[in-house]
Design a protein around this nucleic acid. Structure first.
Lengths: 204, 204, 204, 204
DNA sequence: GATGAATGAGAGTTCATTCAT
DNA sequence: TATGAATGAACTCTCATTCAT
């Protein structure tokens, strides 16, 4: 893990070489062009495989979407969990998410948040995808909670949740708005505002 | 509706009665099911018009999308601009957006932000829609700036922008995340955090 | 009606020229190759129309099948109802169905009973088609009942039903088995056996 | 099974254990859902074997169909040949087929005649299956002829054929129509009509 | 001897759009 | 003006079959 780049979407791959290729290809297409706008024809063409081959690896396009979301989420959280402890305790760790996001933003293919993008496309009947996204965001929020616990002292549980929740909300805005404005000011503003939340609290 | 903005997609419509019906119908479908997942067949079926009639009012589905976004944006901003002055100056007006959002959230058809939802579906070639969304968000951000100007005194331009930008980011998160979690905690948390930004500043 | 051939499947056509063509084409294919073995691609190719054109006339392949069955049934019953009164009362009319069937058998494209063929292909979930076939057969059976009423006297209702039911069963076998054996012996045997049923009864 | 017919599709199977499982599984599916509507994927899934395993036992889906028909036919005729001699000579044996059918009808999975169902689906190029069905029906008809020979005396060959043919036709209707109407009246009516055929003949 | 992996062809259906009338 | 009719292209997904291992 050490030699790998700070952040990459393609950490945790399964065994199947073709399965990986499908996810990787679909991932790029879904992320850049949208889930509904991407057809399986496009995926198999880019993969150089037959349609039936794709469907022997995934039961449906929806399943590919779920794999895509899971894989991006895993890669994101795994990388972030490596990134955070490398920073100094206190403010540095609490604001780590914004610097991490800055790295993501600088990536040539940055396109906002994969999960929120997909969320926006969902019809009411696509409950599985909805549930997956919600679960992943809760996981992320939960990890932010851990960071707060590790870096803030003498505060109530409610105050801790205010901090982690606040960091979460500011991160979510930052990733979406930096994409929308094709500019990193939302990231810096979020990072700039965040400390107001834990201003009078005691950090480790 | 009395004082329409200088530019509106309504202007290009030949028969405003049918045109508005199309937008209204498409609006509901785009908002609840997504833009790409909504077909023109569904729109004309719900409208009870012929396909060629739709295409005599709009050049393309993309144009309907632009009209949809414009109309939602206009309605939103118009209502909000009526809502704000009715509140007490100072903190009340600065936090007005969150109470306004709470009302929106309580609406039975709440589904998050129409613009961000659409943004997530865009392919790189759909620049017109991208530009429209960006423009609308800038307009909203700009109005938040006006509110700040009217309710904060003795602060630098940079500090004003930090406030309006912060309110904007918190609002954007709040609308998306309350939809994602099907819960209004993100709205209340945003409202709760917002005052930290202008804590030491002088309000009118 | 007078100048038309004794029996034709294409009596009752709807207005739409293309709709007619689709049914007519599908009809031939379903009847000769089977319903499931016939693809919509084959139908549109033979029709010389686009796929979407087919689907603007019929909502599904199943609907085409229903139209096919209905049309064959209507043509059959209509022709038969013209055929019967032209024959002498009594035995002649009671056995008319077998002579009518002989004409059908001699048609170059004879392939057994369209309805029973389709019945055999049905999955448990294709209830609409099943119901349609059952209804049509009941209608036919009912008309055989009318013939019996008109040609037999002084017999109980039960005996009348035995005759019409018997004629029906013998007809159904005759059409299927003459197809299976590529020979008309089942038709002649059915016609030969039928009189045994009403042997001792009084005919008009 | 003790005295297998000279030719049986079972003979060509390499591993009869798996081969029989395939036929058994396919048999259920073909009979309840139709031949064309049943995919080999469904068969191997229910069998728990690999696709290549299936194709090492049968050269094609058509071959499985032939084995299915042969097996059903063998089981039917074998059982029936045990059933008949157990009944009293004369009318009882001549009408045995209808009581036998009543038992079949009462079975939970009754779905009409496997052979006629398949016959209805055939395209003109599926001659092997057509021939197999014809052969099996001839075999059945032939056995009905044996029954007649054993139970009717002093009648010409033609009259015997009229009886066996009549029984055959009434049976074929009865099995198909009881399925179509989901009611056993066609069986009882057939049994009721049959004696008219040999009414004046001398039984053993 | 059984399999996992792959495939070309085609299934039924819907897409956004156009055009003669 | 509004429409009915038509379309090529694309959609997601499944078919029966093969072959290297």
């Amino acid at each position: 893990m050490a030699d790998r780049p700070v952040f990459s979407y393609f950490y945790s791959m399964k065994n199947s070489a073709i399965g990986e290729k499908i996810i990787k290809t679909a991932s790029k297409l879904f992320y850049s062009n949208g889930y509904n706008a991407t057809g399986v024809n496009e995926i198999i063409a880019k993969c150089g495989i037959a349609k039936a081959t794709l469907y022997s690896h995934f039961n449906s396009k929806e399943d590919i979407c779920l794999a895509y979301l899971q894989q991006r989420h895993d890669a994101f959280l795994t990388s972030f969990k490596i990134y955070v402890p490398e920073r100094k305790n206190g403010k540095e760790q609490l604001l780590a998410i914004f610097d991490f996001l800055t790295d993501m933003y600088r990536d040539g293919d940055f396109n906002g948040c994969w999960a929120l993008k997909t969320l926006g496309e969902l019809s009411p009947n696509q409950e599985r995808i909805f549930a997956a996204i919600q679960k992943q965001k809760k996981e992320f929020l939960s990890y932010l909670g851990e960071i707060v616990v590790n870096n803030v002292v003498n505060v109530s549980k409610a105050e801790k949740e205010k901090i982690s929740g606040g960091l979460y909300l500011l991160y979510e805005s930052a990733i979406t708005e930096s994409h929308l404005f094709k500019n990193d000011w939302p990231i810096f503003l979020s990072k700039n505002i965040a400390p107001s939340i834990f201003e009078r609290m005691e950090l480790v």
